[in-house]
Structures are given as C-alpha cells and as structure tokens.
Design a protein around this nucleic acid. Structure first.
Length: 945
RNA sequence: GCGGAUGUGGCGUAAUGGUAGCCGCGCCAGACUUAGGAUCUGGUGGCGAGAGCCGUGGGGGUUCGAGUCCCCCCAUCCGCACCA
C-alpha cells in the first residue's frame, strides 16, 4: 500500500470519534495525569496559527503518558462568552449565541483534523447554562464570604455578623475597603440597610463606587489587565477613568498567598517574575501627617484621624512610604488629584488654581496621562502639614504623579532620594535635603545634583536620632518611633488591585443578584442558573443602562435584577475543575472526582495570560480551597508557555517610480521600496511570478530583474498579521502534507517555549521523513514487507538508543530533539535495510504520540486490533548499549587531534603506555614529554604539554 | 528606568564542563527521468593548494579542558513602568 495521508487520516479520525477511543473514566486504580490546554476563545477567524503549537505538544505528552500507564485527563472546551461575538451582534443583529455556535463548530473541525486525543465527552462552553450555573454559584459564595486575616482564609460572612453582634469591630482583622469601628450596640442599632452596607465593606464579592477603566468605544468597564497603554486590548479603544458603582472581587485579600504560592509551582522564572511584579509587594510604613495649625500636637489624638468625637478639627493624612528612613528629608507632601481632603484644606487664595488643576487632571484620559509621564505638573494647596518626627511645616501640593489607587493617595516627598520627587522639587523650586550618604562623611550639595540619589544602601545623615545608622537600621528605628507615638506602623502594600467584575454588556453570565431597598441580595442557589434573558437589541438602553435593562420582566419576586453581566474571566477561572466532573448537575464537581484529579499536572498556553487568567484562576481556586471544594491550593502544577509564533514576511523590491521589481540580491544597485508580498505565492523565498501578477491588478504588468533566472524575495520576522500578508492557515498545510507531518514539523521548529517565526520552508524535510518511515514497513513497490526475522544486535542497538532518547526528550518536553532522533533512527534503519517486526513494532509505538495517524495505520497492519494508544511504551534495555571498546578522542591541551580505541575496561595505567607508543601521538608530541595525561573513562583523553 | 530571557553556518537548530555544528532547510555535484517544486546517492562553518590555522555577540577569569561556570560590556526580544 502506498502512503496516502488523506485516506489514512480521515479513516482513523472517523474511527476514533465513533468508538469514543479517547473517552476516559475517573479510574482510581490507575495513577492520574491531567494535561490541559488554555481555554480557547473561538474567534471568527478560526484557529489561530499559534494555537496548534501548544495543542500538539500537550497532545504528544498526553499520549506518551497514557502509554506509560497513566489515566490521562486531556479535555477541551470553549471560553465562549465575550466581546467579539457581541460586537458582531451589535453590528448585524445576529444573536451572539448563533455566532458563537458557528465559530465553535469551525474550531472543532480544525481541531479534529489535527488528530488530537481530547476526551470530547467532557466538552463544555462557558455560555452553557449547565456550566455557568457554577460560575454564578461561586459568585454567591464569594458574596457570602469575607477574608479573615487571622485564619488567613475566606470565612462565611455570617460569622462576621455574629462577631459584630457580640463584639462590634473589636478584634476584627479582615480584608476590607476601609477600616470600620463600631461597638456591638452600635451594630445592633443599625438598620437592615446600614448593616448590609457595612457588610459590603468586607464581602469578597462586593459592590462599590470606584474609579474604573471606562471604555466608551466598547460601552463597558475593563479590568486592569484588559487595558494596555490606555487602550482596550480588544479593539484598541481609548480608556478613561470614571467613578462607577461596580461589582468587584477582593483579589487583593489573597495577594500574599498568590505571591507565596509561586514558590510551589513549576513555572518559568520569567512568568513568575511577571506575576510577582503584578502583585507588587512592597514593605514600608504607614504614617499620619497632621495638618499644620497653631500650638502643640497631641499625636495620639491625631492618630485617630478625627474619628474621635470632639476632635473633628484634627485633620491628618495617612501616607505610605517604603523609605521611612528618609523621613528627615521630607520637604513637602503630595496628594493625588482625587484625594478627598483637597477641598477641605485648600486656602481661599489657592482655590481657583487647585480646582482648575484637579478638573484638568481628572478629565485626562489614561493614555494621555501615561504618555506624558515625564511632564511635571502640580499645584500648591496653600496648606501645610507637619512632619511628625521633625515637627517642621511642609507645604502640601497636589499632583497627578501620585496615584489614587495605590497606597493612600498621599505621599511624603523626599526629593533627595526619589527621582519623581526630585523632578517635582526642581520644577517647582522646592528644597532638597540629603539624608542618605554612601559614607557618613560623604556629603555633597544637593543643589548641584542632576538626579536624586535613590540608593537603598548607605548611612543616615542630617537625620537627628538616626544619624549614622544604615538605611536598613534607620527604617526600623523610624517604624519603632512612629509606633510608640501611635502615628504609624510598619506595613506591606501591594500593587495588585481588586478586580472589577461588572461589564455593561449582554454576552456574559448574568449575576444571581436582585435589589431590595437599593441593596443587593443573592438568588437562592436552588434556583440557579439565572439564564440570560432574550432582548430585542444588544445596545445599551436610551437612558444608558446596560443591555439587560431591555429584558422583559427582568425581576426576581418583583425585585429588579442586576443589569450588569460578568466579565470574560469569570467563566475561565474555574473551568479546569469542571472537566473533572463535567456533567454533574448537583455540584460544581464531586469531591471524589476532585480528590482523584486534584489539579492540572501540565498546563500549556501562551504567556499573554500571565496577569489575567493565571492570577484570576489562582485566586478562584484558592477561594474554592478555603471553602473546602478544591483539595489543592494551586491549580496548575507545571506550566509551559509555548513561544510566540511570529510571522515571517516576504518582500519584493519595487524600483522607485516604476513598476519594475528587482530581486533581493541586486536591490542594492537601485533605489527601491520594499513591498510585502503574500507568503503563499513564495516558495523558499522564490517568487511565483505568474501568481504575483495575478495577485493584484497593480502587479499585472509588473516587470522583473532576476538573478539566476529567479526572483528571490527578501524576508523579515514580524508580527503575524493580515496586513503583512504573512499569515498561513494550518488547514492548508494539513491539506498539502497531512496532520502527521504538520504535527511533527511544528515540534521540529525548535524548543517549545522559544519564540519562533512561522516558517514553512523546512516542512518538506519532515514530509520526506514520514514517507521514509512508511517505507520501513512498505517496500519501494508499496508492498507490506515487515519480516519476522530476528534482528541483529546492531539493529537492536539502534532501537534502544532511540527508545532512551525519546523517553528522555518526552519527559523534558524536548520535542524538537525527539523528532530529530526519529529521523536519525529512520536513516540508520534504512541504511541497515531493517524490516524486522521486533524493531518496527516498538518503533511504531514511539512515533504514535507524534504522528498518530500513520502509526495507527501501521499498527493495524502489524496485526493489532486495539489502538496503538493503548500499547505500552517500550522498555529500554541497556544491555544493547554495552560495548567492549571505546574510541577515545585524544586531545592535546584541549584540542582534539586524533582517535584511539581502547577496551572499556582499561584503566588510566593501562592506557598511558600504549598511548605514548602510538605513532600519531608521537607525531603530535614532537619529542616533548607530556606534563600530564588525563583519562576520563569512556569520554576523553587529554594530553597536557 | 526596573525585571526576565536570548545571542552558535546562508536559515531553523543540536551539544550530563569532555570530539562545536547532530537533524532538517537551502545550496553544490551526481543517478533515474520527456520533465521536475518527485525520488535516491554524495558533499556542504570560514580561510588555505596542502599540512594546518581560525571559529559559538565582545573583553577578562576559573579549569587539564568553556558554547556551557564566574565578572564586565554590547545587541535583540518580552514584561512592567510616575506603584511612593
């Protein structure tokens, strides 16, 4: 039989599908292994060309693990809610469910063509009510939980209520939006609405007025990770800051655990680093600075921040600093433009200027603000604060270089040792005072400085009681001091912010929330799912309400339901758990299923999810862990980021002012304009001239200056995009070479985690290998030619060398070198004309993870009725590797000169005399006496002269 | 600016501190062919007629021996970026 990949691949894909070959059970008698690909969003464009890379790698690993005796969970499904389908719906009126269904179907077809071993019986979409029921359920649990810092976990909010009833806020140490203080009696005296408002301050899913990223272009708010450089990731629309009432997840409560957990997972250093940066832990101090007024300060009273009855006139600002040691160098204070105390403290003379500045700053878009980071702006309030340590009066300024949502929105400025404060001080001519020096006597005049001295090492100077201490000691001393003064304490701040969880959109999970008396209440879990209602149009209402406000009778027992929907990351944060038990209608997933599958052993996907999905799902999982659902605290044990697939563009060079095109090698002789040319009409950088002329009307009459009769195109690695004409569709390659060739070629390109250009130039080589592989089993004239003869020792050696290499490479995900090993093996067996079953049968198993179709066909031809995926991975036998002699490379001073063979049993003592006598060695020694001879057994001999 | 990664033939890449360039593309030569973007065989880092010399971004170092380990520098890519 001839190798006909179209026939073979179609045949086996059909058989696999019909027999549910890849369906697996939760079978506790076998060790488990969970391999997962990152949830794809089925876009209208079909499978992105970068996707298969990761899918192939995970598929190979899954098949390999299965052959190694593991029960492998390898599911697939779709992250199906989201903006593109809805944008399309707004434009065309087509319901997003229809678009989504169509896209999912196309994805599935593409995936099936690549021969993946997914257990499709576990497939689901995030927009399935059966699934989003559990997304809503989790939201309800979050709503009814708070984070107890003492227990360091989520707890039922009912316990907090109970505590309030008995003790008020005394001894409460919980994650919250703002510190609260009331007694049990005060609590009991509160109205139901007031109580709900107070509890909202603690819930893990809470409703609050916050500054959000409002994207008018998309008509919705966005999470921080959905905004890059002030533009929305989807669509690239400008984003502005807006104060809105939104659902928010208290992710920040988990900041420390999210950070600590990174030490327990096997992810790349770079990915962990990105997450650490995103979480952004910094240690420092919180210190209160009072507003300056006449007389002595009662620091204890000031600490209470005016919350004390009778001390309403005391105004103070809480600042956060990572450098408490530099407090003697504070020469001014800065508040963010959003700071609530600005109106209260601004002097009448300064009021117009301050108000103008605040209005200007608040109305700037995020993009403008970020683009002009280097520009210094700000305004003096006319008010002064008191440095609580030095008791100096310092001016209070307002500037947008202080951010409202980090720390407290107020800073103590130390221009000598902070570059931003320095720039600000220089711009507004504020004093700069040095308080840190490399050595205690090494002072200089800050007036002459061109930049601040940000060093975190050195000695304190001009710093009163901490003079002479190191920076570290000084910091500690100041924290001690402010503590005893009751005006501050050492603390930790995180950059990680709570996640905005509302979207003013239709195509997402509805919230299981209704409003009574203006306060939100959850729908009973027995009544879930809250299904997405039908609406007539997908736009916001005329009054600016989200689309769900259009739904008829969108109420619960007469109460209005929530109009917002959940964001894209809601459904993708816990999907990996649902695969463990996807059809369970009683629970998210059963305890038994979770106890068995535990967490994902291998997660494969792109690094672009580093600050979104991979933080949210870790948070989601930790919460489910806290409430006893998930038995593992980290969801993804090992994670591999497939490298980005870059485009490889081709160019033709038009001679300026003509319709003449000059070949790459000759272009330097002319003045040319490079023009992108469709890579699909270029083969190995040689342009198909006829196809080029037909490609676009402009080129129909093109003339060419050739080299060696050909037009050679230039090339460059760029981002893959339609406008650069460097997009290649995996379907076309499957059509041309077959899935097995494509799978192996993608692996052959290089290490899986490395970024690489999508260059199909080498695919022919892999195609040749596949055909060569086929011919090991089928003779030149296409007849089955496997013999039952006993292989030679040499043939066994080739096989076992390969078994060892493939096993090692599979284990370390080095799939490129494994493909290379298969090629070497096929070359060697071909040279040996080996057609023996005892060699070719195990080899077929080895290859089956990489090229499942051809392997399945050959396996059947070898006489097996069961699938090759159920075969056992061959056992490596070291005895075939044993040799009696070893050919030593002999080097002189580390340079390899010649080779001499010695029995492996020979020791250095036995080798040396023979070595010295050797005429070639004599020649290289040229009469000199070797200083030293190094023999590394079975490795190398080095003669030092 | 901060953090992470990467630098090896014309190209993709390979090398537990031990023979640099495996495997493949491309290229060259040959075989079979009416033909070749098919198949097969051989060759292919640079310089040199040759023995040989030089070669892993650059410069130092450790070592009998460095692409690999250490220090400094350069380039490219990725992430973060007024985070106090």
């Amino acid at each position: 039989m001839e190798y006909n990949f179209r026939e073979i691949e179609a045949k086996w894909q059909k058989i696999w599908k019909e027999s549910h070959l890849y369906k697996i059970e939760n079978d506790p008698s076998k060790p488990k292994f969970y391999v997962l690909d990152m949830f794809p969003y089925p876009s209208g464009a079909g499978l992105h060309v970068g996707h298969p890379l990761g899918y192939i790698a995970s598929d190979i690993y899954s098949r390999y693990k299965r052959q190694k005796g593991f029960n492998v969970l390898h599911p697939m499904g779709y992250d199906a809610f989201g903006l593109p389908a809805e944008q399309y719906a707004i434009q065309t009126g087509q319901h997003p469910a229809i678009t989504t269904e169509k896209n999912v179907k196309r994805y599935r077809e593409q995936l099936d063509k690549l021969g993946f071993c997914y257990d499709w019986d576990r497939e689901f979409k995030t927009c399935d009510p059966d699934y989003y029921k559990w997304t809503q359920w989790t939201f309800i649990q979050l709503f009814h939980s708070y984070y107890d810092k003492k227990a360091d976990k989520a707890m039922p909010i009912s316990e907090l209520e109970e505590h309030f009833n008995l003790h008020g806020t005394e001894d409460v140490n919980a994650a919250c939006s703002e510190e609260m203080s009331f007694t049990a009696d005060e609590w009991k005296a509160k109205s139901e609405k007031e109580k709900q408002a107070a509890l909202m301050n603690y819930r893990l899913a809470y409703l609050a007025d916050t500054w959000v990223n409002w994207c008018a272009g998309l008509g919705t708010v966005l999470a921080n990770d959905e905004v890059v450089n002030g533009l929305s990731v989807r669509g690239g629309y400008p984003v502005e800051r807006k104060l809105m009432r939104q659902w928010i997840l208290r992710v920040s409560a988990y900041a420390e655990r999210l950070l600590q957990g990174l030490d327990k997972v096997e992810w790349t250093d770079s990915l962990k680093e990105i997450q650490r940066n995103w979480i952004g832990r910094s240690e420092g101090a919180a210190i209160w600075f009072p507003l300056a007024k006449e007389g002595q300060y009662d620091w204890k009273r000031i600490y209470m921040g005016g919350n004390y009855d009778g001390l309403q006139d005391e105004v103070s600002f809480e600042i956060f600093t990572t450098r408490p040691d530099t407090i003697f160098g504070v020469t001014f204070m800065v508040l963010c433009p959003e700071h609530e105390m600005i109106g209260q403290i601004t002097t009448p003379e300064q009021k117009p200027e301050v108000e103008a500045y605040v209005t200007w700053a608040k109305n700037r878009s995020e993009r403008e603000r970020q683009a002009e980071v280097k520009k210094v702006s700000g305004v003096f309030t006319g008010a002064y604060a008191v440095n609580p340590i030095t008791e100096e009066r310092i001016p209070i300024w307002v500037s947008d270089y202080v951010l409202s949502d980090y720390g407290t929105g107020a800073i103590m400025a130390v221009p000598a040792h902070d570059s931003r404060d320095f720039a600000f001080a220089r711009h507004f001519n504020l004093p700069v005072r040095q308080v840190v020096a490399p050595n205690p006597n090494d002072l200089s005049d800050p007036g002459t400085w061109e930049e601040s001295m940000d060093s975190k090492t050195g000695y304190m100077v001009n710093s009163g009681f901490i003079d002479g201490m190191t920076v570290k000691e000084g910091g500690k001393a100041i924290i001690e001091k402010v503590k005893t003064m009751c005006i501050g304490y050492g603390t930790v701040n995180y950059r990680l912010r709570d996640a905005i969880f509302s979207r003013q959109r239709y195509w997402g999970e509805p919230f299981p929330i209704y409003y009574k008396d203006g306060m939100p209440y959850t729908i009973p879990v027995e009544e879930l799912p809250v299904e997405l209602p039908e609406i007539d149009k997908f736009q916001p209402t005329e009054t600016g309400e989200p689309p769900l406000a259009r739904a008829k009778d969108w109420t619960y027992k007469g109460y209005q339901m929530e109009y917002n929907t959940m964001p894209g990351f809601a459904g993708s944060s816990g999907y990996y758990l649902r695969y463990m038990d996807p059809h369970n209608d009683q629970e998210y997933f059963s305890k038994e299923a979770n106890q068995y599958w535990r967490n994902v052993d291998l997660y494969v996907g792109g690094a672009e999810h580093a600050t979104g999905h991979l933080i949210y799902s870790r948070f989601w999982n930790k919460f489910l862990f806290d409430i006893g659902l998930s038995c593992e605290e980290e969801p993804f044990k090992k994670l591999i980021n497939q490298g980005m697939i870059q485009g490889r563009s081709n160019f033709v060079y038009r001679i300026v002012g003509t319709n003449q095109y000059v070949s790459n090698g000759l272009k330097d002789q002319y003045e040319v304009t490079p023009i992108h040319v469709d890579v699909n009409i270029v083969h190995n950088d040689i342009l198909d001239i006829e196809a080029f002329k037909q490609w676009m009307p402009d080129f129909a009459n093109a003339e060419f200056i050739l080299e060696n009769g050909q037009y050679i195109c230039g090339w460059e690695v760029e981002k893959m995009s339609k406008s650069k004409y460097n997009v290649q569709n995996p379907d076309d390659l499957v059509e041309k070479y077959g899935a097995d060739t494509l799978r192996m070629y993608e692996m052959f390109l290089g290490p899986i985690e490395m970024a690489k250009p999508w260059d199909t130039n080498g695919i022919e080589g892999v195609f040749r290998f596949i055909k060569k592989f086929w011919r090991l089993y089928n003779s030149q004239n296409s007849e089955w030619c496997v013999s039952e003869e006993e292989p030679t020792r040499e043939e066994y050696k080739i096989l076992h060398k390969t078994i060892k290499k493939i096993e090692e490479d599979n284990e370390k995900f080095s799939f490129n070198t494994a493909v290379s090993a298969f090629m070497i093996c096929a070359n060697e067996l071909g040279d040996a004309k080996c057609n023996k079953r005892k060699i070719l049968e195990p080899l077929c198993i080895l290859v089956s993870a990489y090229a499942p179709h051809i392997a399945e066909e050959l396996w059947a031809m070898l006489g097996h009725s069961d699938s090759v995926i159920n075969a056992t991975f061959p056992q490596y036998d070291d005895s075939y590797m044993q040799e009696t002699d070893f050919t030593y490379p002999v080097s002189f001073n580390g340079k390899m000169r010649l080779k001499i063979s010695f029995p492996v049993s020979y020791t250095q003592k036995e080798i040396e005399p023979v070595l010295i006598e050797n005429p070639d060695v004599q020649k290289w020694l040229a009469g000199a006496k070797p200083k030293k001879i190094i023999v590394v057994p079975k490795r190398i001999i080095n003669i030092v002269m």
